[in-house]
Design a protein around this nucleic acid. Structure first.
Lengths: 215, 215
DNA sequence: ACCTGAACACCGTTCAAGT
DNA sequence: ACCTGAACACCGTTCAAGT
């Protein structure tokens, strides 16, 4: 049996999934700025340069975490409900998956496009839009609009203190100069984030349902 | 006249606007990754540390550029048109301003909240939403939805190759596995970015016009 | 008061070397 | 083949010093 031992190549000690999980752990623990090659290597109990045997780039590492997080999104459309409800459910799954790891938000932007999970998710949404009776052009606009909305809403929720402290500051603006904004911000403090997200989504879906919507 | 000369403090050589303009020039020329304290200082003909006399942080520097770009947005609502048309015009001004300097896109996210320009812009949009007959809660949802849409759409347009090369790649997907997505991507190649943006915005405005939109 | 250059503590990544 | 440590070319920022 020694023949095999002699010729046996040193087994790879890491896997793509393990690296992604380690990177996500670092991200969750130390935030976006804490994600460094050194930190991930340490998390894996490997020298910094050891990582480079499995990943060509920091770029590629980021892609792995993003895919790990987005891969948690179930792309299968819900079995029943109106097409509006089914699309809404799909969209909310993305928000939930990303919301569980806010530190990946800045990374999703640059890496989302390569994600097979989001590809399958998009296929489902496109299918439901077809079911809703949209033509090619309407489906293009609607799918892009939904994507833009999720992306923007997620960022609004997690980046920059517009959600928490920001609204409070705005609520204290000069009433003479910002009457409408001030009132809106004050009302905003009573609207939970979930409702806000669902409400905006409902507006978009209502527009899609109206069919056409002039360009 | 020598009394003044003796007591005269050394005049400041830089201004916030000058620094912002230099940073924007660097950004336009060398991209987001090229924006460094050293590069901006060089652009201004000053030592790297000279910058720190006017700016406490790289963070603050970024804020200055973002404000310079967003400050170009005219926050006054257009004189006439339906409220939908007037809101659409305001939203498109943001897209135009940011689109003129794509390299600031990643920065706008983290710094948008402090922008007085966007505050005035938001006041205008909130005012038009009031005019449209929305109540407090509806206005909150609509304003946030519009913000989310602009942010997301701008990023979709400028980040990650989903707009250009990405759609081409998707258009070549396995038709058996991705029938709807593939067809959509193929159609997408015939829809110019401007129309796509306006179309998605129109969906949102149509939803707002329908009033209410179930949560 | 304003500005500078050297230095420090980080990065990502290259390279030569170890098993 | 897989892994390591030293080294390089960058960052942002601190600090002591110059006018």
């Amino acid at each position: 049996m020694s023949y095999a031992v002699k010729a046996m190549p040193r087994p790879r000690s890491l896997t793509a999934e393990g690296i992604a999980a380690a990177a996500l752990a670092v991200l969750d623990r130390h935030g976006t700025g804490g994600l460094t090659m050194r930190a991930v290597a340490q998390e894996l109990g490997v020298s910094t340069m050891g990582l480079y045997r499995y990943v060509t780039d920091r770029e590629e590492l980021e892609g792995l975490v993003v895919e790990l997080v987005l891969g948690a999104v179930d792309p299968a459309p819900p079995a029943d409900g109106t097409w509006q409800e089914r699309i809404a459910a799909l969209v909310e799954r993305v928000r939930a998956a990303v919301g569980a790891h806010p530190a990946v938000v800045p990374l999703t932007m640059t890496h989302r496009h390569r994600s097979p999970a989001i590809l399958r998710w998009s296929e489902s949404v496109a299918g439901l839009l077809t079911e809703a009776g949209t033509d090619d052009r309407q489906r293009v606009v609607a799918l892009r609009g939904l994507l833009a909305y999720v992306i923007g809403a997620i960022q609004l929720e997690h980046l920059g203190p517009l959600a928490g402290a920001g609204t409070v500051a705005i609520a204290g603006l000069d009433p003479a100069e910002f009457p409408n904004l001030r009132a809106t911000a004050q009302a905003a403090r009573r609207v939970p984030a979930d409702e806000e997200f669902r409400g905006g989504l409902a507006l978009l879906l209502a527009g899609i349902g109206r069919r056409g919507a002039a360009t």
